[in-house]
Design a protein around this nucleic acid. Structure first.
Lengths: 263, 263
DNA sequence: TGTACATCAGTGAACGCGCGTTCACTGATGTAC
DNA sequence: TGTACATCAGTGAACGCGCGTTCACTGATGTAC
């Protein structure tokens, strides 16, 4: 680790380092970050359509063409924001799960699940435009590059992880009265996905190598429900009925945990 | 009714009629509709941001300023499209429920519920941009006028109606093992909404005057789940996992019907 | 350590585009007597 | 039925705006000898 600090390592090495060395490299890294942050600020104020390279440059006291030294196009800047947003909401979910797991009292998978739900909602309410950027209507003319896939998967994987760990600990109830059997096509899809997950090892190693299809499907359904509710809340569908949506959300999250089988 | 056809009624009456009389009025009604249709076509191609008055006018062979004789601003045209979209998806849901109710074989509330779910999904998949217009990210700078509330309520009311009729027919199961009790705050919200619904009589008259809070909440949760899944499907969250989403959707819809208590 | 050259950041002007909305106007359609 | 006037649809020019991206350029920073 210490060798990464630069001074003690062989100066002849031309290998690129994690930390920038020259003043130029440091300035570049900083401005790259500052541009992204200013863009994020404008996104929060206006939404994705309102994000303009010229406005970002203006705010930073630069000329618009200067931004092209940092991001080759507007879409690349958008991609950076999208990846950041997915990572941030993924972080929030994973951290909530981790924190809940550490609490002796509330360490049960069900508590982890509920903590994740509320952390995600809190994140979304604090950054509605970033939420809309990743879970709202697709941006016309923009195609998400493959680099967004990994970050986008963190939230659903966190839920699958909780469900899987709940299962291992014996906390996942077996199919109850309200549980319908999966149609074969769905079993096939779920099994394929499950195999892919265990092959890449993204689901934590302390878990059965293959997540059973019905559990995976339940987690995915719960995931869609959760985001359906958050989207309705943020996008205004509850205006005049279930607003504020705190009680509805808390109840739905609890209901979901039961549906997934966490007790 | 015949008196509305014009010829037979008193010519001295200056009362505005449902059907336009003069050539001017007919032309105006037709162009108003044509503008909206062209706008809808552009919406389908480009999304809400891509909708431009100038482009609509161009396509219709008019000059852009001429549109202002028909819609006072771009936002008013958008509002018209939004109301139409809500009405169309509401129509689809209501028609599906009605058709299913008529079928002797599948006339059970559960069949009505499933028919509505699939009709809504089909509508959304056929018109993704219209769907995004009403259920996607809010349009920056646009505030929906009160006139959208009624049409927007048709879909959730259709679901509440099915649940309520299911209950009356004894098809709504009582709280089962997976059912959590509602927190008081939620009961209060649901009861208030329920009272408002029965006061305005929007829920069909063949139903108990007041929809019980827990049933209302279950219907609302199911409504959010349904649209969460459709949004994920249309907005690309299932890419690489549950795509095509037919099997997942069918299963989730069935699961929801059970959750609501329809058997 | 000092010089010559290469690399890179940022400038400023320009290209080419599109937008919503206003306004004075012409010419057609409708209405009242 | 015919004329005078009012209403309305559509025109064309203009206002004022903003955008993403390219390109030749200057001047500062970094590198090799």
């Amino acid at each position: 680790m210490t060798e990464l600090d630069g001074a003690s390592s062989d100066a002849a090495e031309a290998v690129p380092r994690a930390a920038p060395r020259t003043a130029r490299e440091r300035a570049r890294a900083e401005l790259t970050r500052e541009i992204k942050e200013e863009a994020r600020r404008q996104l929060a104020a206006t939404g994705a359509d309102g994000l303009s390279l010229r406005a970002v440059a203006r705010e930073l006291g630069m000329v618009s063409s200067a931004l092209y030294r940092y991001y080759p196009s507007r879409d690349d800047l958008l991609t950076a924001l999208i990846i950041d947003a997915y990572d941030a909401i993924g972080d929030a979910a994973e951290r909530a799960v981790g924190d809940a797991a550490e609490h002796g009292f509330g360490g049960m998978p069900r508590a982890q699940w509920l903590a994740a739900c509320h952390a995600i909602r809190d994140w979304a309410r604090a950054r509605p435009h970033e939420y809309a950027l990743i879970y709202g209507s697709p941006i016309p003319g923009y195609r998400a590059p493959a680099a967004t896939i990994g970050p986008a998967a963190r939230v659903p994987l966190a839920f699958v992880g909780v469900a899987a760990r709940g299962s291992k600990a014996g906390d996942l109830a077996a199919g109850g009265p309200g549980r319908l059997p999966l149609p074969p096509a769905l079993v096939a899809q779920a099994a394929a996905l499950s195999a892919a997950l265990s092959a890449t090892g993204v689901v934590a190693g302390d878990v059965d190598p293959q997540v059973p299809p019905d559990m995976l499907v339940r987690a995915v359904i719960a995931w869609t429900q959760l985001f359906g509710m958050i989207s309705f809340e943020l996008f205004g569908q509850f205006v005049g009925s279930f607003e504020p949506a705190d009680a509805l959300f808390a109840h739905a999250a609890a209901q979901l945990a039961s549906f997934v089988g966490l007790r």
